[in-house]
Simulated assay, not measured.
Amino acid sequence: MKQLLQKGLLATKDLFAVVGPLFAWLLQGAEILSNQEQCKAGAIPHRFEEYVTQVRACAEQADTGRAALLHFLKVTQSYAPHLFFCYQIADLPKTNNDLEQAFGKVRSAERRATGRRGAIPGLVVRGSVRVTTALATRLHLFSGEELVPNDLTRWRQLRSEVSSRQEARCKQLRFRKDPHAYLVALEQRLSKMSLRF
């Protein structure tokens, strides 16, 4: 086994010479984003921008690994505007894995409560409200006074958005059950509207 491992390491020695420095760049970026030094939220984007500038300069000068660095810069540029919300909002998960675990907990709690095994339609229609509520109640037990909406206009707007999604979902269900009848009803409504004008 030891000989096999040594043979593999010798065969890939040249590849590691290229990958090693690239991996070092990647670790440096991860270190900035992990914020182990507990920097203020405003300092992290600035530090990360300096890091990206250094990587860009290295990519322009590099012969080997240039394509990988350019790809890294392209992907980083597309994610950059959304990388720093987790430092501005307390308790917001920092990685997709953390977010997926949070959403998974909500999904499993919904499944336990409803007894359904598949996707829960209510999460699709009312997800912006139900998921937020489920995640918030894990962090804090709300009193009745705290649940009273502060901004009635925003609350009514949110209720309207949820109701419109519910209505669209009902229409989809009606169409799937009987497409012909649904289209006939639409044609009748359209003909009545055209008669008015």
Rank of each mutant, 00 (worst) to 15 (best):
A102W: 10
G127V: 01
G122P: 00
T133W: 10
G118I: 02
N96W: 01
G115S: 06
R107A: 13
T133H: 13
D91H: 06
N97F: 05
N97T: 07
Y87L: 08
A80M: 02
S78P: 00
G104S: 05
V125Q: 12
R117V: 15
D98Q: 14
A109G: 07
A102R: 11
P93Y: 08
A136H: 04
G115E: 10
F103E: 03
A113T: 09
I120R: 12
N97Y: 07
K105S: 05
S128C: 02
F85L: 15
Q101F: 13
V125T: 03
A136E: 15
A136G: 00
I120V: 08
C86V: 01
A119T: 05
T132V: 11
Y87T: 05
V131R: 15
N96C: 06
L99H: 10
T132Q: 06
Q88E: 15
T137F: 06
D98K: 06
R126S: 11
V106L: 14
Q77G: 04
F84Q: 07
Q101N: 15
E110Q: 13
G115I: 04
I120D: 14
R116W: 10
T137C: 02
G127N: 03
R112C: 05
A102H: 07
P81Q: 08
I120F: 10
A102S: 03
G118L: 00
K94T: 10
S128P: 00
L135R: 02
H82Q: 10
G115T: 04
F85A: 14
Q101V: 03
L123Q: 09
G127M: 06
R130L: 06
F85V: 07
R112V: 02
K105H: 10
R126I: 01
L135N: 02
L92C: 13
S128E: 11
A134N: 08
Q77V: 00
P93Q: 09
T137I: 05
L83D: 13
V125P: 00
G118Y: 02
R117M: 08
V129Y: 11
G104C: 01
P93T: 04
E100M: 14
F103W: 05
D91R: 04
P93C: 12
R117F: 03
Y87R: 09
Q88V: 10
A136M: 08
A90T: 08
S128Q: 10
I89E: 12
T114H: 06
F84L: 01
D98Y: 04
V106Y: 08
G127P: 00
A134Y: 06
V124H: 13
R138W: 00
E100A: 14
